[in-house]
Design a protein around this nucleic acid. Structure first.
Lengths: 221, 221
DNA sequence: GATAGAAAAATTGGATCCAATATACAATAC
DNA sequence: GTATTGTATATTGGATCCAATTTTTCTATC
């Protein structure tokens, strides 16, 4: 007899499942900013009690995706223009460093995967998938930095602003610029030019931030 | 009638209280690495049920201060040398940028407060207080950067390694070097030299990291 | 005495129940 | 008609109870 070894203890708890689902829904913008998250309602959706829901909400609050008020409940967190600006500035700092650390470690397979994501991004017409492909492209390169702590921070930063980015990309045409910048970053990686890749990544993030902030300023006024 | 307005809703929940207490205990090293955290035991300590305790543990896990395994419970998280090294490298990157952004905004009062913390750090003989004073010194300057998101990240990074730093400072004499470096950083801030303050902060963090890693390598072998 | 297996105890995850608080709405005074 | 008070309902925070799982202890066997 031959069986694939599976660690059954990896089975997720109800709180994990609820957390993942809510995180995804918030990131993808399926839950509107300011929308109330009723514990009972969510519990029923997942056929569970409110206990795991509360645990999930508590975690989401730690990551800044929702805000809660005692006896009032949780609402999907909204970010001010200033907060969004700060997060993009932060991402530019950290991601520029991550790609710099990654370049020396990039192997053939990683670069090939990044190229695929890059092409996929350019060809995809379903705007709902851009956010995901964008992450895949950058992460495929970032992972080579071998800096799990950096990457975790980058992920929580991305989580906070992803919903805005997606909304903007579907409504404007920031895609073509993003695509061009992706190709330039990839080219710098292929040329093993860490400094250039770092500078381009920094600009890529800052451009996206500037473009998003301008979009939101217009939309919110 | 005239009464001072007080927002009664600020009252913390049981989960908040437990979270704060456990976070403090872990950061200060009162809970040994690998130590089991029994829900029941903690609940009794705080005269509450296990529900808020579980919420607190869930939050602590999100911040990397503990690790949990399904049906097995929570233990105080330990960091490998590599992880500690990475966190110091990350802190050096972010804190160097934060101080650079802070310098232009430093006013008289802030600088005076920083000077007090700096002197206090040099004079304090109770090693248990060094960690706290160290934070106060750096944060008094960092706050002027007006970057709440950066500061939040810096805080969680510090939280992760604080216990190791404190243990080392009590056993070795890294204090005198730290004190000298603090004075240099403060001087650069007084001279409004953002670049120098940034470089010195970067070196300060990297030096602390190198010193700690060397100490731990020796201790763990 | 050491070891494998079964029973018992301990521990966690989740469901249900109760208390505290907030919100919505009706009743009343003016 | 409007503002204020009281009441009913909805919602959250926490306690208690039950099920799933792990850890420990006991026992039989060698």
């Amino acid at each position: 007899m031959k069986l694939a070894a599976v660690d059954v203890r990896q089975a997720a708890s109800a709180a994990d499942i609820v957390y993942d689902a809510l995180r995804k829904a918030i990131i993808e913008g399926d839950l509107a900013e300011g929308e109330n998250l009723r514990q009972d309602q969510i519990a029923q959706m997942f056929n569970t009690s409110r206990i795991p829901v509360r645990e999930a909400l508590s975690r989401l609050e730690q990551h800044g995706l929702i805000t809660t008020e005692r006896y009032k409940g949780a609402v999907v967190a909204g970010l001010s223009i200033e907060e969004i600006d700060e997060i993009f500035e932060f991402r530019a700092l950290v991601e520029a460093e991550v790609i710099r650390l990654a370049v020396p470690n990039l192997d053939k397979d990683t670069l090939a995967a990044a190229r695929r994501h890059c092409e996929e991004f350019g060809q995809e017409t379903d705007s709902a998938r851009w956010g995901e492909i964008n992450r895949s492209f950058h992460y495929s390169l970032y992972t080579a930095s071998r800096r799990p702590y950096y990457l975790q921070i980058v992920q929580t930063s991305l989580d906070r602003i992803d919903r805005y980015l997606r909304a903007q990309l579907t409504l404007t045409n920031g895609m073509t610029r993003a695509n061009r910048e992706h190709q330039a970053i990839l080219a710098a990686c292929l040329a093993r030019d860490a400094d250039l890749a770092s500078r381009l990544t920094r600009d890529h993030v800052l451009n996206a931030g500037r473009s998003l902030v301008a979009f939101l300023k217009d939309q919110r006024s």
